[in-house]
């Protein structure tokens, strides 16, 4: 079939800025500039650490959510799942204090428990979606209610508190760090970097995008569609577990109000970052930018007396809708 050798040039790399790619970054830079302009303390070490450490929980979860959404799925249960994992983790640690004593041993068992419950929860969601073939929205809407109600039941309607002595040992996992960088920030950064590499450089990332674009094509191209889908939900479950491990030492407690609306914040961050809600295209670094945008809005409103912090949600909502509108404009151009 060789005729004349067709030479096809790569697309011109001009100086034109692709807003679809750089839009979120520009928005983030604008927010940073605005924050610095409104309050000199905005760029202080304390504030930056605070903002980043608080974003870490949602951020770690949102990285996992990027894979689920890219493969054409959705997970509404992550907020409740985090609360449930936190509750189980606290109960396990409290139960082990009499036999194991207070120390890192107990905490490591607690962390292991968090990861195990995370994997299990991811498996439940994933298996119901891939094996029972129920829509992801329905499955995770159901498990969202189940996890939320389980934590309320475990806490007997109140709050589960971690043993005070254990809490003292565990505290540095949230408040400590190395070289002045807090642990949650380090973990978030690692998760994000690994996630970005997995998405762009591995067969798993490529398979997620292919499944999200067209499941049939993936199936006919020797992709194990169910296995990849399941893996995405389990990965998300593990990341929810990691996020909870970083979260528990912050307050040392879990209740029915833990992690409320985290799922929506995580989904919003993913979408703002340029991942397509219908699946087929995902960008982990975009998700990180999305998370930072959402938390900076809250931070700036708190620091500056320009707009009431109570309007935080409204401004976030506007940003989310704007992000999707920008995505769509790009699509019609193509």
């Amino acid at each position: 079939m060789t005729s004349e050798t067709a030479t096809i040039a790569p697309a011109r790399k001009g100086f034109r800025i692709d807003f679809h790619v750089w839009g979120p970054v520009i928005a983030l830079l604008a927010l940073i500039a605005l924050g610095a302009f409104l309050n000199p303390n905005f760029l202080s070490y304390g504030n930056v650490t605070n903002v980043l450490a608080r974003s870490a929980f949602i951020g770690i979860i949102a990285v996992g959510m990027t894979f689920v959404i890219t493969s054409g799925g959705l997970d509404l249960s992550v907020g409740s799942m985090a609360a449930f994992i936190a509750g189980v983790m606290i109960m396990v640690m409290n139960a082990l204090v009499p036999s194991m004593g207070v120390g890192w041993g107990v905490i490591f068992v607690g962390m292991a428990a968090a990861l195990v419950v995370g994997v299990a929860a991811g498996l439940v969601n994933g298996l119901l979606i891939t094996q029972a073939r129920i829509e992801a929205f329905i499955v995770t809407l159901g498990t969202m209610g189940i996890f939320r109600s389980l934590i309320t039941w475990l806490a007997d309607g109140g709050t589960l508190s971690l043993d005070f002595a254990v809490r003292e040992v565990y505290r540095p996992v949230y408040y400590g760090g190395i070289l002045g960088v807090a642990w949650p920030i380090i973990v978030f950064a690692l998760v994000a970097i690994i996630g970005e590499v997995i998405m762009r450089k591995t067969p798993f990332g490529r398979h997620c995008a292919a499944i999200g674009s067209n499941e049939q094509v993936a199936r006919y191209s020797a992709v194990h569609v169910e296995r990849v889908r399941l893996a995405a939900y389990v990965l998300l479950g593990v990341l929810v577990g990691i996020a909870t491990i970083m979260y528990v030492p912050r307050l040392g407690s879990a209740s029915s109000s833990t992690g409320v609306l985290w799922e929506l914040e995580a989904i919003a961050a993913v979408i703002i970052g340029g991942t397509v809600l219908k699946g087929g295209f995902g960008r982990v670094w975009g998700t990180v930018v999305g998370v930072l945008i959402l938390s900076l809005i809250g931070n700036i409103l708190n620091l500056a007396n320009l707009v009431s912090p109570y309007l935080n949600g409204a401004i976030q909502g506007v940003i989310i809708i704007l992000a999707v509108v920008l995505q769509r404009q790009k699509k019609t151009e193509r």
């Binding site: 490529r206 995008a209 292919a210 674009s213 067209n214 049939q216 094509v217 993936a218 199936r219 006919y220 191209s221 020797a222 992709v223 087929g280 295209f281």
Partner: peptide, 17 residues
Amino acid sequence: GRGLVLTQGMRENLTLL
């Protein structure tokens, strides 16, 4: 419907199988 991912580029499609 089953052969190519229309929203992706030639490279991603070529190497998927």
